[in-house]
């Protein structure tokens, strides 16, 4: 079976401090991987390295996406190739309307694939439909990107973008943190609606609760910059019962 993403022995540092210390992870199309771990274990660093944020320095290892070296590509190239990061802290961009960003991103990706830019009316129809799916009012489309949005609205907006851009590899960086149960369901429904045999998800999360609504194929526990344990969905329940302490102790003792 083919591989969508292969991470091998990935080491990365931020501000000169080593955060990732040898990550190995293989993701196949159609799979959902949950990456769990305590605060400071390197979860968000992994997300940002995959998306290409500057300031995250890879010191060792490789990341291969669809057979290409992902780390060589600038962030916009990765996005056009189908990598999508739902941000832990989506930025507010006053003056750039949501609808405009969606259209610019959508067309950038289409051009990359050799397709024509979308007709404005068709696009509006698509956007309105997806907006209803994430339970956002249409007026949000015309506001500045995330400007004055609540925490839950920002996360739902990330899911809206994901639903419209239809990426191949979706990385959700703690999208569930800080959400009430209704917003959490919206996020989960968005992910479940997008699940397909071609598409894969990496759910980076601190809490097991998200996995009540999205059933992962694989669960990995990250501690001190390494994946210290991998298993199926039952591992998440084990973590919920026992906390992260035993994993960390085991990792420290290893």
């Amino acid at each position: 079976m083919n591989t969508l993403l292969r991470i091998e022995n990935l080491h990365a540092r931020v501000d000169g401090k080593a955060i990732l210390k040898g990550i190995d992870l293989t993701v196949k199309p159609g799979e959902v991987h949950a990456i769990m771990g305590p605060n400071g274990s390197g979860k968000s660093t992994l997300s940002n390295v995959l998306a290409g944020r500057s300031g995250y320095e890879v010191t060792e290892g490789t990341v291969t996406y669809r057979g290409q070296n992902l780390l060589d590509q600038p962030p916009e190239q990765r996005a056009r190739e189908g990598v999508f990061l739902a941000f832990q802290y989506p930025v507010e961009i006053p003056g750039v309307s949501n609808i405009y960003l969606l259209k610019a991103a959508y067309n950038a990706i289409r051009r990359h694939r050799g397709l024509n830019e979308v007709d404005a009316l068709d696009f509006l129809k698509l956007v309105k439909e997806k907006t209803r799916m994430v339970d956002l009012d249409e007026q949000f489309l015309y506001r500045g990107v995330n400007e004055g949005f609540s925490g839950g609205e920002k996360k739902r907006n990330e899911i809206l973008q994901m639903a419209i851009l239809e990426p191949t590899l979706c990385i959700l960086d703690e999208t569930d943190s800080g959400l009430d149960i209704d917003a959490l369901k919206v996020v989960a429904n968005g992910v479940n609606a997008l699940r397909s045999p071609e598409r894969a998800f990496i759910l980076v999360t601190h809490y097991q609760r998200l996995l009540d609504y999205i059933k992962p194929d694989h669960v990995h526990v990250l501690a001190h910059g390494r994946i210290v344990r991998s298993g199926d969905a039952s591992l998440a329940h084990e973590l919920e019962r026992k906390g992260y302490g035993w994993i960390e102790a085991a990792a420290a003792g290893a």
Partner: peptide
Amino acid sequence: LDPDSVFYLESRGIDA
């Protein structure tokens, strides 16, 4: 310009 905002747009496929 805020580098986080630039990165956010880049991560959506828009060149720098």
